[in-house]
């Protein structure tokens, strides 16, 4: 199971560690040629403006878009969720997300760093709570009818899935709890 981690900027090394622990082989993606032989992809947290900008200038964006449309399973966390969303509210005017999952997100919707928080989340299918770490996190303001909401905080979705795309507002790579990475790998490799 070769799983790419988009390594343009952000917490990509922590995702790679979690993937190794879950039995997958992580590959750092910095250019289009790295995308060629991955079976799934993680877009990490970081700054979405930086990641989208570099995806464009380093020539990753178009190929990535094609592969997602062809069914590449993707997990996007925090900035990764913003990158995959349909529309960004309060972002930069020129910030153009990939539109891979039918959600609209508000950048820094939970506030600046002082409002960053951790909280126990009840996640569908998990027997015990999962510790969610939210850092200048995006707020999901709309989730389309094809989107399954797997966890919420105060009524707002924080963990969404649509077919083989999963997104979280929080950072599963920062806590030593591999359940979300395992769930993603199950989703990605269930049929293949």
């Amino acid at each position: 199971m070769k799983v790419g981690v988009l390594a343009l900027q952000g917490a990509f090394d922590r995702h790679a560690q979690e993937l190794s622990l879950a039995g997958a082989t992580p590959l750092e993606i910095r250019g289009p040629k790295h995308l060629e032989d991955v079976d799934a992809l993680i877009i990490p947290g970081g700054e979405s403006t930086t990641i989208l900008k570099l995806a464009e200038s380093l020539g990753v964006r178009d190929l990535l878009n094609d592969q997602i449309q062809d069914g590449l399973p993707v997990l996007g966390t925090c900035a990764g969720m913003i990158v995959l969303s349909k529309a960004i509210i309060d972002g930069r005017d020129d910030q153009n997300p990939l539109g891979s999952i039918d959600i609209d997100v508000r950048r820094n919707g939970y506030g600046r760093q002082l409002a960053s928080f951790e909280a126990d989340l009840q996640i569908t299918g998990f027997e015990t709570p999962f510790r969610g770490v939210f850092i200048r996190a995006p707020l999901v303001e709309r989730a389309g009818k094809d989107v399954e909401v797997l966890a919420s905080v105060e009524g707002n979705p924080v963990f969404c899935r649509q077919e083989k795309i999963m997104t979280t507002s929080f950072h599963p790579e920062l806590v030593s709890d591999g359940r979300i990475h395992e769930l993603f790998l199950e989703l990605a490799f269930a049929s293949s």
């Binding site: 917490a11 990509f12 970081g46 928080f117 951790e118 850092i135 200048r136 105060e154 920062l174 806590v175």
Partner: peptide, 20 residues
Amino acid sequence: AVRETGTQLVKRGLAEMLKG
């Protein structure tokens, strides 16, 4: 969910996001 702010995880977490 009870929100805890200003924890080490949250404070060091932003530094993780600035990597690279």
